[in-house]
């Protein structure tokens, strides 16, 4: 029985299968790239949004928060925080950190200036408008 199960055939299936499914993946990726503009509304990515994303990254926000469900699970989801809290609240919140309440989770103060705060809000606003197939399930994220 084992002679009819050859290593050469197993190897060919590995290489063939890998190439085949990677090509399929590339095909789906190609289609996704065609669909994305109507879902991510890239026409709304202003300079302010771009700067906001940069601030998001250089303050390592993803180290505590999730954004569209990805990141750390230590602090609230921010993909929809613009809808949940609104721009002015977000700015005030970032500025008032850390709360210093003993025993509670603390967020550092990043000393952002007015412009940077606006950029941050612009980025979170744009993010909240991406079509995420109705995720998160509710406003609490």
């Amino acid at each position: 029985m084992s002679e009819t199960f050859t290593k050469a055939m197993a190897r060919n299936i590995f290489y063939g299968g890998a190439v085949f499914f990677f090509l399929l993946f590339l095909g789906l990726t190609f289609d996704t790239m065609q669909q994305l503009p109507s879902r991510d509304h890239r026409e709304n990515i202003t300079d302010s949004v771009v700067r906001g994303k940069h601030i998001w990254e250089t303050r390592n926000c993803i180290g505590c928060h999730t954004l569209m469900g990805e990141g750390a699970y230590f602090a609230p989801e921010l993909g929809n925080v613009y809808v949940r809290r609104g721009g002015p609240f977000i700015k005030a919140w970032i500025q008032s950190q850390p709360t210093g309440v003993p025993g509670r989770r603390q967020m550092p103060n990043f000393n952002l200036n007015e412009q940077e705060l606006d950029d941050m809000v612009a980025f979170l606003k744009w993010t909240s408008e991406v079509n995420t197939n109705k995720w998160p399930p509710n406003i609490e994220g």
């Binding site: 029985m1 009819t4 199960f5 050859t6 055939m9 197993a10 299936i13 299968g17």
Partner: peptide, 13 residues
């Protein structure tokens, strides 16, 4: 009747 025709590996696939 003894085994499926062809290489067994293709049957896994």
């Amino acid at each position: 009747h003894a085994t499926p025709p062809g290489d067994l590996a293709i049957w896994v696939f």
